[in-house]
Design a protein around this nucleic acid. Structure first.
Lengths: 142, 142
DNA sequence: TTAATAATGATAATTATTATCATTAGGGAG
DNA sequence: CTCCCTAATGATAATAATTATCATTATTAA
């Protein structure tokens, strides 16, 4: 998806496509594949719109996540991170380096079977989250 | 494992087995299979030792996790939760109910293959974390 | 027993997030 | 175009979880 598609999605919602929201969206698009914290989004957004406030950033990220334009996740650092949701559509997951903290993507299709078993037990799954912790190639003692 | 084994593990470490630490350990053992927040541990611990402080609880949980007696994890509620680590040894995972927040255990052995693939890419895995989100049997609209 | 060190509890400080509120900005009715 | 209504914004206060500080207490080693 590209910029105008996201804007269309937002415009079609109950919310308005304001300048601030477009800015946050643009930051996320410029950082496709990365996982930004609210603070990091603020830093980037201020380059485009110097007086945007942190509250607006939080509010916008929350709204974009509720529209499923963004995915909101917790990567064991004690704060939430956001990424464009369509990067997640193909069920990829995250490998978190315990040394440098870098996050890389992992593709996966092995989970379907496991999910079926769980649903047999009466638990109706709507989402899942898989993370691997270890040493990325750069940090690996090798 | 039982109480004395954990105590032995702690005693064998660089840390002392104080009364407070034994209390926190006992709370965790009494709640085997549950995932307690620091605040919940404090509540339980105060029943056994009324004047234990929250700082000691945090410090003790941190130490027990560093000794791998406990597992410390984030279940998307914005706070850490702790559980006895040996409950995790058989690679079970968590199903988090998005309605009532209950956490149930999922056994799993399907991940080995996926891990092998990731290691081929040069990422050395030391741990992983798999969570399912959905509706538990009680909350399922069914 | 005493000196050194580690642990504790109270509480201050910090960090991430959410709530409040006065002000501003758009969008439709006339 | 102007007025009104509501939504959105930015500044900042409030909250929640966690971590740091520090004086006091307990434990260990000599």
């Amino acid at each position: 998806m590209q910029k105008k598609d996201y804007q269309a999605k937002l415009a079609a919602s109950q919310y308005k496509l304001t300048g601030q929201r477009a800015t946050v969206l643009e930051v996320m698009i410029n950082n496709r594949g990365k996982h930004l914290s609210a603070e990091e989004v603020l830093q980037q957004a201020r380059k485009l719109r110097p007086n945007i406030g942190i509250a607006t950033v939080y509010r916008t990220l929350e709204k974009l996540a509720s529209l499923e334009i963004l995915y909101k996740g917790m990567f064991d650092s004690g704060k939430y991170r956001y990424e464009l949701a369509d990067d997640r559509e193909h069920h990829h997951h995250h490998a978190v380096c315990v040394n440098c903290g870098s996050i890389t993507e992992i593709k996966d299709d092995l989970l379907c079977e496991l999910e079926k078993n769980i649903e047999k037990q009466g638990f109706r799954i709507v989402d899942h989250d898989l993370k691997f912790y270890g040493y990325c190639p750069k940090c690996s003692p090798s």
